[in-house]
Amino acid sequence: MMETGNDPRVWTRFTPAERIGRSIVYIVSAIAIVWSLQTVEIIPEFLYDAPEQTADLFARMWPFDLKFWPVVWSTLVETFHIATLGTILAILLALPLSFLAARNFTANPILRWIAQFIFVSSRSVNSLIWALLFVAIFGPGALAGVFSIAVRSIGFVGKLFGEALEEAHQGPIEALTATGAPRAAILLKGYWPQAEPAFWSVALLRWDINIRESAVLGLVGAGGIGVALDAALNNLYWDQVGLMLATIFAVVVVTEIVTSFVRSRII
């Protein structure tokens, strides 16, 4: 091939085939948006007075019914317990599974597949649905809440921790293998120290999420502040609803701050 010198060479980011592919994606997306806008069937009258309704709702919430506080506090503590116990239970169940799911630790594809299957089943069902199931099994109350939180969290904790294990450097693992250490010792002194920050980070993040999720579990009878919220909503005690919503909001903000602070210290 000859270089002509004054012939400017052209650089393009995409090949013609890539350009056509991208154009098709854009067109299909635009069609999908227009189509869905036509089918949502917004009722204009309801939309127009939405600001009014919202203002009215807030007006009925204020002032908060502070006499209701003892109930809020005790159900809040229960919510906290559900989230924490559920997270601990999930971690205990997910840890062994995450080792089974890690490609570099488990060679057997069937074992890995089983672990992945459990993770997907756990993650694909919302905790409210799990709660409905466990309320049917254990009856209404905190126990059903703990189990639904735990089962919902197994997939999250297991998948993320399993991925952290897969990212462990192989060098130290190779070195410990060369010392003649048994597998359990390699796990303990090779994999665990490398994956430990990720473990705490995942556990705290899930705990944070679980506090939010366990606040609504009571709507289906699985204990916590949601039970009281449900009752207040049904009775139209908006001043109690307002107090609880404000409390939940405050708790979520505080746990968010605490967990992100702790996580930044670990990593």
């Binding site: 130290p172 190779e174 070195a175 060369a178 003649g180 002194k189 120290p193 430990e196």
Partner: peptide, 18 residues
């Protein structure tokens, strides 16, 4: 047998966080 054979690596292969 591996217990009786020590090994030193190019990248040291220490467990960094220990």
């Amino acid at each position: 047998i591996r217990r009786r054979i020590g090994m030193v690596f190019q990248e040291y292969n220490l467990v960094e966080r220990l």
